[in-house]
Amino acid sequence: MRRAIPLTILAVVGTVLIVSVFLPPLENLGEDFTLFFDIIAVFAFFLGGGNLVRIHFNKLWRKRKDWGFSIVTLFGFFFMLVIGLLKIGNPGGIGADPTAEGSWFQETFNYVINPLQSTMYALLAFFVASASYRAFRAKNREATLLLLAAFIILLGRTPFGVMLTAWVPESWSIAQIPNLAVWIMNSPNLAGQRAIIIGIGLGVVSMSLRLILGIERSYLGEDRG
């Protein structure tokens, strides 16, 4: 029974949503179900928050390894919760929008959370460099081809690339590095991406059918194989 109910819900909702694509009066059902999902997700948020607090309190209480980080986590959690709920520093008072300019909640977001997020995002630049260094080593024929394509695209997007092949006559404009870079992006690259997207579409169809028919149950912990 514990498995039958979710499987039945999945089968019914899945089938109705597929059919609704072809029946205009039902075409908004997808949006309705998304709304139901959002409502469920809001309730689940309490589970997530509760779990976070429980785990870190536990870690702190038992003085487990790296318990110091739990103090930071719990402080951040409760600090934001309190200043958000009590609208501390909010110019409009307790009834105002918690994200109003000047409120502690918004100020903390602007001057602590935002810079921290930007810092994490900025790491990407360094990781791209280290990943490129490994990926573009000419170990074999395919890797050499990749290196060559990357080199042309990088060069094609710099003024130096434009300057380098500016002398090539217009009748051979495809040989100009910027145009070659555009061709690589718009032809071989796009063709490859579309092939992957077609495969993804078919994969989604196949997996959805397995889920709707109840053949795929491993997400419920059942292994029929």
Partner: peptide, 23 residues
């Protein structure tokens, strides 16, 4: 796992004929 392989993975790992049939 590139694209469709992600969706095929569970069926592939199960080795179950019915799941492989869907692939």
């Amino acid at each position: 796992l590139i694209g469709e392989e992600l969706f095929a993975a569970s069926a592939y790992l199960s080795g179950e004929p019915m799941q492989l049939g869907s692939l």
